[in-house]
Every structure is written in structure tokens, then in C-alpha cells.
Amino acid sequence: MALSSIFGGASPSQQQSTTATGSSSKVAGIKEQLKTQIGQELAVANASELVNKVTENCFEKCLSNPYSSAEEGCVDQCLAEYMRSWNVVSKAYVARIQQASTSGEI
């Protein structure tokens, strides 16, 4: 019997298992932080892509030189159409990811 066990300390084998358990919980925490960070960066990238596509497509389609107020309705309609489409695609994508996650594919 070691002195550390007499005074309430753990034996070396107990200390290793505690350290291993602590390490695995740290790794799990780090993985969750990485997943959250990647999700946030992906959301920013998706929003940037949406803005770029709207700008590229709607403004090229609707605007001519010089700008007239009649073109404003075209831009509004184009933007609304892109946003509706974006929402449909995003909802479908999220549903597929959730389905894959619950079925264990991810």
C-alpha cells in the first residue's frame, strides 16, 4: 500500500484513468468547439455567396446605364425570388443533414 493512498491520494493507475477520462472529455469539448466554429464560418460563407450571386445576377439583369426608377421593381422582384429559392434550398439541405445525422451517416 502506497503512502499516497493512506493520505487520500490516488494510486498511479487510478491517476492515469482519471487523466484519460479528463483527456477524452477535453477532446470531446474541442471537437464540439470546432464543429460550432465550422458551422459559423459556413454560414458566413453561404451568406456571402448569396449576396454575390444576387449582386451578379439581379443587377446585371435589371440595371442599365443610366439607372432609372423603373428598374427598381425588377431588382426587388429578382431579390425576392433569390431569397425564396435560397430559403427552400437551405431548408432542404438542413433537413438532409439532420436526417443523415440521426441515421448515423455523419
Rank of each mutant, 00 (worst) to 15 (best):
Y93Q: 07
A92N: 01
K61H: 10
V75L: 08
C74S: 06
G9P: 03
S69E: 10
Q14W: 03
T55L: 01
G104M: 02
S4E: 15
G22W: 04
S101A: 15
M83L: 12
A95W: 06
V54T: 09
S64V: 07
C58W: 00
A95K: 08
L79E: 05
V75D: 02
N65A: 13
K31R: 14
T18D: 11
C62I: 03
L79V: 06
Q14R: 12
S25C: 11
S23D: 11
E32D: 15
Y93M: 05
A28L: 08
A95V: 04
A10H: 08
E32S: 15
A47H: 15
S13E: 14
I6E: 05
T19D: 14
A47M: 11
A95R: 02
A95G: 02
S85A: 07
T21H: 10
T18K: 13
Q99R: 08
Y82T: 01
C74P: 00
S48H: 09
D76Q: 13
S5K: 10
E32I: 08
N46A: 11
G22A: 11
L34C: 12
Y67A: 15
A80I: 09
C78N: 01
K35L: 13
S17Y: 09
S85Y: 09
S24R: 09
K26L: 09
A80M: 08
Y82E: 00
A70K: 11
A2L: 14
E81R: 03
K31V: 09
N65Y: 14
S23M: 10
K31D: 14
K26W: 00
T21R: 13
Q33M: 12
L50R: 01
S64N: 09
N52W: 01
I30C: 13
Y67C: 15
G73P: 04
S68W: 02
Q37A: 15
S64T: 12
N46I: 04
Q33W: 10
I97M: 06
I97H: 05
A95D: 07
Q98M: 08
S11D: 12
A80E: 08
G39R: 00
I97Y: 09
N57A: 06
Q37H: 15
G29Q: 13
G9W: 00
S85D: 11
I106M: 09
C74Y: 03
S24L: 12
S64A: 07
A100D: 05
G22I: 01
N57V: 05
R84C: 01
Q77E: 11
A92H: 01
A2K: 01
S11I: 07
S4K: 12
S69H: 01
N65R: 13
P12Q: 12
K91Y: 07
Q99A: 14
F59P: 00
V75H: 02
Y93S: 08
